[in-house]
Design a protein around this nucleic acid. Sequence first.
DNA 1: TAAGTATTTAACTAATAGGTTAATTATATC
DNA 2: GATATAATTAACCTATTAGTTAAATACTTA
Lengths: 104, 104
Amino acid sequence: MNDTFQALSSSVRRKILAYLSKTDLTAGEISERFEMSKPALSKHLSILMNAGLIQGEKKGQYVHYSLVKENLFANMNDFLVNFCPQGRPLKLESAEIKKNKKTD
Amino acid sequence: MNDTFQALSSSVRRKILAYLSKTDLTAGEISERFEMSKPALSKHLSILMNAGLIQGEKKGQYVHYSLVKENLFANMNDFLVNFCPQGRPLKLESAEIKKNKKTD
DNA sequence: TAAGTATTTAACTAATAGGTTAATTATATC
DNA sequence: GATATAATTAACCTATTAGTTAAATACTTA
């Protein structure tokens, strides 16, 4: 869980996850979307890999990255369950949440 | 959202939240639960405060801290909604999640 | 095989995070 | 008012993080 939250503490990495939630991308395609060197991006990708939030598959000279959604949800659930008194998995009322929404 | 995930990236701070999910505590009571100096704990508390995840109320010479659960859920929801294709709030099947559970 | 492209690794640097002890602030009590 | 307690702030140190450029690795193609 530590690795997960550590990985999620960077907005760059959260954006990578958001991109991958739409479609798989190669390392190069990901790096095009950021104003940052490829090695820097590569490090972010390896942090997400180590946290089990993404996976990479080498195809020829490319590495295709994809989201591992189950791990994302599993870790979030493990965490959030602490705050549900009944110990049940999440059941949120969207209205109550929207009320407190802050734009980022 | 950055502040929230930054705050959650520390296991000490996640433990503080877990304690506060059970009951309100003073700064001193919180620091007793960790092997760390009071100033160090105080800094963790201020990070959680800045993220809006806890609030402190001064009563006499004590400061009583409590969880602000709504902000926790709101931020998590804002984040997780990205990964729900329909854009709906979370609806997870606990069985599928348990399968991938990793102990921390 | 040589040259080009995709990606990662290595070596380095600057900024940030997380801890320490000492000092300060605010309240309580004698 | 003096002293004790709770909590935070200040000053400092070390380790980690996040970026850089240069080099290495792996694959493709002429």
